[in-house]
Amino acid sequence: MSAETAQAGITRRRTVAYLGLSVLGACIGLLFLLPLWWAFVNSLRPGGDTFRYLNPLQWETFFTATPTLDNYATLLHSDLGLATLNSIIVSGITVVVGLAICSMAAFALAAIPFRGSGAVFIVVVVSFLIPFDAIAIPLANLFRDWNLQNTYAGLILPGLGNGMAIFLLRTFFLAIPKDLVEAGRLDGLGWWGIFRRIYLPLSVPSLIGAGLTLFLFQWQSYVWPLLNGTDAQHILGPIALSNMQGQFNVDYGVMFAGSMVLTLIPLAIIIAFQRYFIQSVSTTGLK
């Protein structure tokens, strides 16, 4: 009898814990979503209504019965829209060119046994231990001397060689059996052929992971584009958005619409490649 009640007690306690943890987890999750959700809802209503439903809080604070895409339409023809397009161009070129040069470097470090590969690897590691934002100011002075200020090249170049991406790809390449290299050589492949025909096709997941690293580096950057490309033609999304926030008369609706676009693009990419993103996160943690 008493054993049965004890058993029932344990089951009940488990149920209570399950429910409690579910509610707690849900509340915290929703709390984290709140700022973005609020920004999203405000992007769907006129800028004049941003502060209308805040005092006191009501259901209309977080929902709108009359959503409109007007702010997004305005965004299309605004400077912020152009700046977002610039961000897409700069990040896109960075991913394509950066992946090419980083995977080549990683291949040399992982597959070609040459003297000095240890020293080169140390340079790679040191280069990603030096935080880029900290050296952005001296680099911006160099770029001014080299006439690279306010050019696409100036915005893209620092994102191309990424020590972290090289590190990730090298780790993956090291796991590819050397027998395959030998087999490739017997088939008459040169080093380029081995890289192009054997290593790259086998490494699609880690290439996607490294591509995400390169993309997020550019998309999220703020210090560098602020120092190096602020004229109307080359300004990037985050800088244009923060300029807008600093103005005296802000159209909050358009500002939130711009925030949403700048967020949804990387979000869609992260969700599409979620598996690889988590993979690269865990590889970084294991180093």
Binding site: A100, I101, M104, V123, L157, L160, F195
Partner: peptide
């Protein structure tokens, strides 16, 4: 293979 990335890091 290394030159582009290595030079850009340097």
């Amino acid at each position: 293979f290394l030159a582009p990335a290595f030079i850009s890091l340097l």
